[in-house]
Design a protein around this nucleic acid. Structure first.
Lengths: 172, 172
DNA sequence: CATTATAGTTAGTCTCGCCTAACTTTGTCA
DNA sequence: TGACAAAGTTAGGCGAGACTAACTATAATG
């Protein structure tokens, strides 16, 4: 971990960086709005698996940051910067998930869930490379057989070869 | 995100799963103990960038879970299951970081920091594949030139090709 | 248009993880 | 060995983010 952190001059500026939680709300609104053009509190709650009052709180918070247009009992819409921010997060999500599924061959469900968490952990430097890498691998299957496929076979061989030692994963 | 979650029978069993924070403490102790065979509260605090009382709290917590041997004012050691758990976390960290550095070509500092966060987000299914994949790529450079190198050139070309559109990343 | 179901909000509480200030214990060294 | 520094702990507090219970506003329906 090794923090270090600014330490002294930190008091200022309530920080415009979003918490993982608020990023999740923003992304949820973005996705819901993308489908049906409206985002209802109810649906946000359902999508994120939280209770309704949690949504209200988050919306107020996002409104204070100028990312959503919030009016009590009204529909929720994203502001311009809200859209930008949400698109950024959703983009990360998509890149990460795509890597998991298309390169690593992870099950879509698992990849989806993992991407939800990882999108808050990985900065632009990594995600940008991940995108390039995924493209690189999927495009480079001109020179020979499909690399992702090769990997699948490699992995199968490896996992079969060492049954007893690794079996699966030291459970728990 | 899409939770769903057990929902009904969840009340029981205070959960033996560690929070991200506690995993960090455990990993820190593991690393410190590995180097000098003792883990002092002071060093844990420094390594994680937290205040001393936070360490005390975490240690009590870990002790309650049977992962560390904690005696007030004494040195901290890991129990057997503490070692197992810590090794698991540290293993994840190492696998993830290695992928970032050796495959994606990310700067070691950045990779270190990102791995710290990602290790809490990625489950065994993904990490196991990540390990295999990294090995696969680094071992498969027999058939032709080094793939990681190829990727580096691919990326350089790509980033140069699209200067204006992507330039870097929409800052903030 | 009145009733009722549904959506949303308010108020209050809880847990987690961190902090500072002040205290106690331990270790060091003259 | 006694004083002082360093390490560790206790007490108290704060913010984020979630929850439940109870209330209010909106929508739908006869």
């Amino acid at each position: 971990m090794v923090h270090s952190k600014g330490k002294k001059l930190v008091v200022v500026a309530k920080s415009n960086k979003l918490s993982a939680s608020l990023e999740d709300y923003l992304e949820a609104i973005f996705n819901l709005a993308g489908e049906s053009n409206v985002a209802r509190s109810k649906d946000i709650a359902k999508l994120l698996g939280v209770a309704k009052p949690s949504v209200t709180g988050a919306l107020k918070n996002l409104a204070k940051k100028g990312l959503v247009n919030y009016r009590p009992y009204g529909y929720v819409t994203l502001t311009d910067s809200g859209v930008a921010e949400a698109a950024r997060v959703a983009g990360k999500h998509s890149i990460i998930k795509s890597f998991f599924v298309n390169i690593l061959g992870v099950d879509a469900e698992v990849a989806q869930e993992a991407a939800c968490k990882a999108e808050h952990a990985l900065g632009p430097a990594i995600v940008s490379r991940l995108l390039d890498f995924t493209d690189f691998i999927t495009q480079t299957n001109g020179s020979g057989s499909d690399l992702a496929d090769k990997f699948k076979r490699f992995r199968k061989r490896r996992r079969q070869g060492s049954r007893k030692q690794i079996s699966k994963q030291p459970r728990k």
